[in-house]
Amino acid sequence: MSGVLDRTLGILELLSRHGEGLELASLADQLNMPRSAAHRLLADLIRTGYVRQTRELGPYMLTTKLVSLGLSFLSHSGIVDFSQPLLDRLAEISGELVRLGVVDGERLTWVARAQGARQGLRYDPDMGSDARLSCSSSGLAWMAALADEEAIALASRQGLGRPEEYGPNAPRTLQEMLALVHAARARGYSVAVDTYTPGLSAMAAAVQLAGQPPIGVITIAGPTARLTEARMQALAPDLLAIAGQMAAASGTSPFFQRSAQARQAGGAAAARRPIYAE
């Protein structure tokens, strides 16, 4: 059963990266799956409303059912309720795109945003996706709040973002990434220039209560020509203030309450484990 589940989730994740849809052969080949098995699983996904086929023998595409599930979860998690007014305020101050990413296990996912730009491109294709930790300002800010060993482990498991897929300044080694993490730790917020997207600059600060691990990250992003180093330095106090206010308000969210309880339970369990001296 686990193999069927893994394959089904693999199909959904692959189709989520292909808005134009995929032919059966291409989908099966990319997932290293027999075409007959892929066809059976796609038939089940069509029956349950998660996938549709544009025409007979045509490509398969996701429906909006997964989107509906995600939005329904967010509406009941309390995340947007307390965060949106703060994101709106920071977007108004900065005049740029402001986003909130939440920490969920080893993932950092963008779940809310506010657009402060009065003109230019406003489309945000990354909403709902996971941040590439090694080259996004969000990932660097999260890792700056962790020990180096934990940051390296997280980035290693996810993999480094390659410059040909991200920005020309994306770090090519863990050592280069750590240099960015250390700089973020020293200044209290991360800065990324042409690392995640060419021509894009961003800054981010962790959302965390004193003595607790981060629960999320707030990001300000904009064109490098507009969001200059001097501009980011000027915005830093507002970014850090909003991050602090969001951390203080996070107790109103059922999602963050459960996350905090899980971390406390994990810490208590670790404390009860016997320690053996060598």
Rank of each mutant, 00 (worst) to 15 (best):
A112K: 07
I218Q: 13
H39T: 00
L209R: 12
D104Y: 11
L71E: 05
Q53C: 07
T197C: 06
G21L: 06
M246P: 02
R35F: 00
R107K: 12
P237V: 04
F82C: 06
M33C: 08
A43V: 00
L69W: 06
V181M: 04
A144F: 00
W142Q: 03
A247V: 01
R263G: 01
T48K: 09
A268R: 15
A114P: 00
L86P: 02
Q115K: 14
P223M: 04
V207N: 06
V111T: 08
P125C: 09
H76G: 07
L121Q: 09
D6Q: 14
S75K: 15
L27T: 03
R258H: 11
G199S: 05
R52T: 00
A249N: 04
R99G: 08
S16M: 05
R99Q: 13
Y189L: 05
V181E: 06
A205K: 06
A179S: 12
T63N: 14
A204M: 05
L100T: 01
A260E: 13
A277M: 08
A131F: 05
Q233Y: 07
A206N: 08
P198W: 05
A144I: 01
P125Q: 01
L62V: 00
Y50W: 10
A37P: 01
S137K: 04
S134I: 08
Q158N: 08
Q158L: 12
Q30Y: 04
Q158Y: 09
P59K: 11
G251D: 09
A184Y: 02
A241Y: 02
E164Q: 15
Y166G: 06
I242E: 06
D124S: 12
A271F: 14
E92D: 10
R157T: 00
G139T: 04
L240K: 11
Q53I: 02
P213W: 04
R7E: 05
A114Y: 10
S253W: 03
P237A: 08
L97T: 13
S36V: 12
L140R: 10
L140E: 02
A131Y: 05
V193M: 10
Q257L: 11
E149I: 03
D126A: 15
T219Q: 12
P34S: 10
T228Q: 14
R47E: 01
L97D: 00
D29K: 15
V51H: 12
D104P: 03
S201G: 11
L74C: 05
